[in-house]
Design a protein around this nucleic acid. Structure first.
Lengths: 343, 343
DNA sequence: TTGTATGCGTTATCAC
DNA sequence: GTGATAACGCATACAA
C-alpha cells in the first residue's frame, strides 16, 4: 500500500489541501511549494488512491464492454479487432476498459449491467450486437448513463422494434445490397441467406439488403432461401448443409458473417460442389482468415478496429462534457471480391 | 444515481448497520427484518456503491491485464482466445477484467502498472509474454500484489535472467523439440528458425527446443539459421524472405508463432518454392487460421482459452486466501502435423 | 437483535 | 497561498 496524501503532507509540513492542489496543478499554489511537493511525491512513490478519488469525483475512468459469452464465439476475430480498438484508443486517452462476458439476454447479463451501472463501476458503456428489442438500451437510457452503440443503420427508421441508440453505424444493408447485386450480375438467381441469431438487428438488416437487391432486379424476394445460424463456423456449416440438401439447392450462399461463410465453404466442398465455380459463397466482416480460405472468401469488410476506436472517442468526448451528441456516423463496408464468388 | 444505504435505512426505520448486515447475510439479523430489508432493497433497486465499498473492503473485484499494444498484433487470434478465457472464467466467479494496452517496456506501460497497482485499481495482475529481465515481475513482487504469469517452463531454471514467477507454464521447449525431431526425421538438415522479439522468454525457449533436438540428433546447432520477427504476419514474411534469399536457403522454416508462419508461407510461395514439398513451414499456437492456410499449417497447439481460465482461477483462489501457492502447472503443446511439413 | 459512531483518502468549500 | 473541515457511502467495533 503506497503512501497517502496525509502522510505526504506531514512529511512536507504542509496541509493535505495544499499537497492535493499542488499535485493536481491548481494555479493557487506557490511555484516553489509545488516543486517541493511534486519532488516529494515522486520520491515517496505517491499514487492517488483510486477508491478515495472515485468516492469524490464519481469518475471511474473506465468504460464497460460485455462480450457475448456462452458460445464458442471467442474464436471470432471480429472481437479481437474490436477489443484492441477499444483498448488502444482508450489507453491513448487515459481511460481503461472493463470487460466481462455474459450470454446475451441472460440473467448474468442483467446482473452485470446492474452492478456496473447502478454501482458506479464504469463511466459509460459500449454496446455491440444490438438486438431487436434491446433491454440494454432502455436500461442505460433509464439510468441516464452515457453509452455508444455499434449498430447497422436502419434507414427506414426501425419499425419501432428497437430503440434508437447513439453511436457508430455501418451500412450493413447497403453493403449487402451491393454484394447481392454483384451475385445477380454473375447470373445467380437462386440465392440462400444464412443469417445470425434472429434477435440481432444485423441479421435483419443484412437480410433486408439482400431483399432490396432482389427487388431492384425485379426478382421476388420470396424466392430467397433463408437459414439461421449462430455466429460461428460450425453453425454456419450446419446451416449450409441444410440449404444444400434441398431438392433445388441455391447457387449462391450469402452468409451473415465470415465465420459462418467459412463453415458454408466447408459444407459446399463436402457436398461435392466446386465453391466459387458452382456455388458462390460470401461472408461479412473481412477477418484475416477470409483471405486465407480456399477459395479466398468474398466479403464485406468493415474497419472494426477503427470503428471501436471511434466509439471510445465519442463516448469519452461525451463524458468530457462536449454534451452535443455527435451526429451518427455511417461507415460503408467495403466489398472485397475474391474467388469464392468467381464463376 | 441509485438509492443509498442510508436512504434505504430511513425508509425502513432501521439503522444503516442493520440494513447493511441484512443484505450481506450476517446471521445476527432477525429473519423477519432480513426479509423486509431484502424486499425493500429489491424494489428500491438498491445496488451498493462501488466506490464506497472499495474504500472499506480494499477489494476491487477486478483483475488487470495489459495487452501488448503498439503493433498490429490486434490481428493475433491468440489474444482473442486468451481474453475470452480470462473473461469467461472471471465472470463465472464474479470478477471483472480490467484491460488496457501499452507497448511492451514503454513508459506508458509503467504508468499503467503504477496507476493500477499502487492506486489500488485491481486486486491482481495477469501477465503474458514474459520477458528476459522483466521489470513487471520485480515491480509486482515488490508491491506484494498477487499475479499470475503465462510463461514457458524453463527447465534449467533460468540462468538468472528472468525472475521466477508463479503461474501456468507451457512446455514450449519440449514442444519445439518434438516438432524439430519430426522435421529431422523427414530428412531436413538445413533448418531456419524465425523467432519473435529477442527479449521474450518464449523466443528463447522455443529456440532452445530446436537446438536441443538438433543436438539429440547429433547435429551441430551452430548450423541453425536464425532470424527475428515481430509476432505478426508481415514481419514473418520479411524474415522468411531474408532466409530464402541466402545462398543456401533452409529447407524447413520453424516459426515462433502461427502468424509468423503464415507470413513465411507466403514468402515461400512467392519465392517460387512449393511449401510443404520443397520447403517445410511450421508455426506455433494453433490458431484457427493455421488450418485454413494452404497448405494447412503444421503447428504446436496450446489450449489458450483454458490456460487463461486457469490463470484467473489460480489468481482468484490466491486472493480468496487459499494462500498456498498452487504448484506450477505445465501444459504440453500438441503437435499438429499438416501439409505444410509434408514431403 | 439493533443502533451509534468512526474512519477509509480524497477533493471542495470556505475562511484566514 | 495556505489550512481547517466537511462530505462521499459503506462496513465494522462497540455500546445498548
Amino acid at each position: 500500500m503506497p503512501i497517502t496524501l496525509r502522510e505526504l503532507a506531514r512529511k512536507l509540513n504542509l496541509s493535505i489541501t495544499t499537497v492535493s492542489r499542488a499535485l493536481d496543478g491548481y494555479p493557487d499554489v506557490a511555484a516553489a511549494t509545488r516543486e517541493r511537493v511534486i519532488a516529494a511525491a515522486r520520491e515517496a512513490g505517491y499514487e492517488p488512491a483510486y477508491a478515495a478519488r472515485l468516492m469524490r469525483r464519481h469518475r471511474t475512468g473506465a468504460l464497460g464492454y460485455i462480450l457475448p459469452g456462452g458460445g464458442e464465439q471467442f474464436r471470432d476475430p471480429f472481437h479481437s479487432a474490436f477489443l484492441t480498438g477499444l483498448c488502444d484508443r482508450a489507453a491513448s486517452q487515459g481511460a481503461d476498459i472493463l470487460i466481462s462476458s455474459a450470454p446475451p439476454d441472460s440473467a448474468e447479463e442483467q446482473t452485470l449491467y446492474r452492478r456496473w451501472v447502478l454501482g458506479g463501476r464504469v463511466d459509460g458503456m459500449l454496446i455491440n450486437r444490438l438486438r431487436l428489442r434491446d433491454w440494454r438500451i432502455q436500461f442505460l437510457r433509464g439510468q441516464g448513463i452515457p453509452f455508444v452503440c455499434l449498430a447497422p443503420s436502419p434507414d427506414p427508421p426501425a419499425q419501432g422494434e428497437e430503440l434508437e441508440c447513439p453511436g457508430v453505424r455501418v451500412d450493413d444493408r447497403g453493403g449487402m445490397r451491393r454484394l447481392t447485386a454483384h451475385l445477380l450480375a454473375l447470373g445467380h438467381r437462386r440465392l440462400g441467406y444464412i443469417g445470425g441469431p434472429p434477435e440481432l438487428v444485423l441479421t435483419r438488416e443484412r437480410l433486408n439488403g439482400v431483399r432490396e437487391a432482389l427487388r431492384s432486379a425485379g426478382i421476388d424476394p420470396q424466392g430467397l432461401l433463408i437459414e439461421t445460424a449462430a455466429l460461428d463456423e460450425d453453425s454456419g456449416y450446419q446451416a449450409a448443409r441444410r440449404l444444400l440438401n434441398l431438392a433445388e439447392p441455391p447457387t449462391a450462399l450469402i452468409a451473415c458473417s465470415d465465420l459462418i461463410a467459412l463453415g458454408a465453404l466447408r459444407a459446399v466442398q463436402e457436398a461435392g460442389f466446386q465453391p466459387g465455380a458452382e456455388i458462390a459463397v460470401s461472408g461479412y466482416d473481412g477477418i484475416p482468415a477470409a483471405a486465407l480460405a480456399h477459395p479466398p472468401l468474398t466479403t464485406l469488410e468493415q474497419p472494426t478496429y477503427q470503428i471501436a476506436g471511434r466509439m471510445v472517442e465519442i463516448l469519452l468526448a461525451h463524458l468530457a462534457g462536449k454534451s452535443e451528441p455527435p451526429p451518427d456516423e455511417i461507415y460503408q463496408p467495403r466489398l472485397i471480391l475474391r474467388a469464392s464468388t468467381q464463376s
